[in-house]
Amino acid sequence: MTAQSNVRSSGTATQQTTGRRFTVNIRDAGTLLGLILIFAVFSFLNPVFLTGANLLNILQQSSINACIALGMTFVIISGGIDLSVGPTAAISAVVGATMMAAGVPIPLALLGALLTGMACGVFSGTLVAVAGLQPFIVTLGGLSLFRALSLIVTGGNPIFGIPQEFRAVINGDLFGVPTPVVIVAIIALVLWIVLNRSPLGEYILAVGGNQEAARIAGVPVVRTKITVYVLSGGLASIAAMILIGRLGAADPTMGNLWELDAIAAAAIGGASLMGGKGSVVGTLLGAIILGALTNGLTLMNVQAFYQLLATGIIILVAMLIDRATRGAA
């Protein structure tokens, strides 16, 4: 190579590098921009919206969906999908609440709930990774199965008797920040590190980006896939614990359609259903966008039907903008 072309190619490289760092962030920045826009509109329409109390309220309302959506993001990045998150939450809630009501120490009951959710993940993950079934179908089956189990176990009745100490913690706050928000923030931080800094994260991105190449390169594909479903199941049970702490009861019908909100948050945040792409920050912002929308419209006394309409429009607009900007770049 001549000196001239060396200079030129290294010049190109620098440009590309800066360009890339920019694009990695640009997707999250775009989601943030969307969030700011929604905040601007609502605070213009209703002065109550942009108060500290209401902002915390939004975060708290978004926390359960954010928790589920983070697990969903990991599954989606791996090239899968988890439709069974709602019933997984329900069955974990039933197990946790039953144990608490029976007087089992709270940490033990929480562990029981968590293990239940993770077991659901092992079930789906094994069918996907080992038996080679399609994730959509496997977790669709899981959706019915786990829901049925929680209904059968409870006879369809809610379980009451959640200890006050536990409820007090969940409904309490840490330096003014509601506990659920703190919990989800910690989870998000850990997951960000896992995705961006750990071998597991690299494996998940590789398996979702090109499974066969990853396998040939020695990536433990089966283990990686099972792990993401276990993660998703575990996060579903954490979301369930937050909810039973707030409600004081475990309803076996809990979590109906949670999977759709979670997928929406992940997609708004830039996760590609083709796999190999997704962002923890983006998903968080996506969940907050959906939460802010519901909150703002409720403040303005907009009927629930119209709220649903707005949610649908936001999802589609987000995807269209995503598509258009990617085409231009």
Binding site: S198, P199, E202, L205, E212, A214, A217, G218, V219
Partner: peptide, 24 residues
């Protein structure tokens, strides 16, 4: 394209895949 690379990941990440233990 099919069996070798994970195209969205960096060269460094593609290199590290078989020996993550060593790089972590």
């Amino acid at each position: 394209k099919k069996d070798g690379i994970v195209k969205s990941r960096s060269v460094a990440a593609n290199i590290a895949l078989p020996c993550m233990d060593r790089f972590s």
